[in-house]
């Protein structure tokens, strides 16, 4: 576990990030720092702009304004203006993206091992035995039985697919993981298992993560910090437990009080 004081630079610095859909606001003027090893939750209801924000951060959408500075070897590089090849390379190396629907993040017609191995091969791994060993290691780390390595994700349950997607993303040791509703659509017991897994991995690997969710229980367990969005704007930020236990903004108060018990 890296001590946070060791590195005194944010891993990600976001400034004035804005995205319009025509005249409609996707997100506007979003800024924050994310430090190494930190997990930030972004919550808000559907249409609040949290997914737009995540896609702008991860380079899937081009923002209309703002900067997303990522620490690359000590240099803060603006990933909005960097060349597409460089950004895509980042997406295969230092960054990872976990989709809400595993089918969007997996190749459903490729075996579990091939899915996990793809990122390794994408960064130049050319030794089958090594690739397979890494894939097997990761498949077991996400608690999928090793003998399922040659099965396709189509034969997996929803929870297994999501865990496979996580293995596929983490195999190259990224530093920043974007997650879009990673537990959405899963049974509660399956969610708990996934959350526990994610928490362990985040700590062991010293990962930073940005998690978009509408589930306050998820951020309570996973996120160090919280950002609350409404109508494309950030209405409140702070320590996760502080925002949930002593919300300041009316919308956050409504959000927190609407949940049965977090």
């Amino acid at each position: 576990m890296k001590d946070m004081s060791v590195q005194d630079r944010p891993l990600l610095r976001v400034e004035g990030l804005t995205k319009f859909y025509g005249g409609r606001i996707g997100c506007e003027g979003v800024g924050f720092d994310l430090w190494p090893g930190e997990v930030m939750g972004i919550v808000g209801e559907s249409g609040s702009g949290k997914t737009t924000l995540l896609n702008c951060l991860a380079g899937h959408l081009a923002p209309d304004a703002g900067r997303v500075l990522f620490d690359l070897d000590g240099e803060a590089v603006d990933t909005v203006t960097m060349s597409e090849p460089a950004r895509r390379k980042l997406g295969r190396t230092d960054w990872a993206f976990v989709h809400q629907h595993a089918a969007d993040g997996l190749r459903m017609n490729v075996s579990a091992g091939g899915n996990v191995g793809e990122r390794l091969m994408a960064v130049g791994a050319r030794h089958y035995g090594d690739i397979r060993a890494s894939a097997l290691d990761w498949i077991e780390r996400v608690e999928i039985p090793g003998d399922r390595i040659d099965d396709r994700p189509t034969a997996f349950s929803g929870g297994m697919r999501q865990r496979l997607q996580i293995a596929r993303n983490l195999v190259t040791g990224p530093r920043l993981v974007f997650m879009d509703e990673p537990t959405g659509g899963l049974d509660v017991s399956v969610q708990a298992r996934l959350l526990d897994l994610l928490r362990g991995l985040v700590r062991e690997m010293g990962l930073s993560a940005i998690i978009v969710t509408h589930d306050l229980a998820v951020v309570r367990l996973l996120a160090d910090r919280l950002m609350v969005m409404k109508d494309g704007h950030v209405v409140e930020t702070g320590l996760t437990d502080q925002v949930l236990d002593d919300p300041q903004h009316g919308y956050t108060q409504l959000l927190v009080s609407s949940v049965l018990q977090v």
Binding site: E84, P85, R88, R92, R107, V110, S111, G113, G114, G117, E118, R119, L120, M121, A122, V123, G124, R126, Y128, I131, R132, I149, D150
Partner: peptide, 16 residues
């Protein structure tokens, strides 16, 4: 962009 990792996925699947 010479992103050819996927081509090896096909060969990986073969061997697997």
């Amino acid at each position: 962009l010479e992103e050819y990792g996927l081509m090896h996925v096909k060969l990986y699947e073969d061997i697997a």
